[in-house]
Amino acid sequence: MKIKQFIQRLFGSKQRKPSSGGTSANPSEKMQKMMAMLSATREEELTCDEVFALLDQFTELAAQGEDVAKLMPLVQHHLDMCDDCREEYKVLKSILYGAA
């Protein structure tokens, strides 16, 4: 693949997506997404495993109405950066709300 193709794939891709999801952002939106990610990037970040270890505690605090972004800012930051972990957090929170 030539660089141009890589660039088009990154910012102007016609990549096949699952029928019920995936991004369809235009190049400008993808650039904005990437710059937003870079802007939020920190020198030290928790990994997915580290966040998984704390996710039950974090989610219970959130479900209790605590200011989790203040109490556990590194976990909150990772959830802002990582779609997979954020999705799992939202489902876990909905279970706790459902059980309440």
Binding site: K2, I3, F6, I7, G12, P27, S28, M31
Partner: peptide, 15 residues
Amino acid sequence: DVDDDMDASYREAPD
């Protein structure tokens, strides 16, 4: 599969 074609540029209208 990147090659050495470093002069490639983005040619689509961005927005």
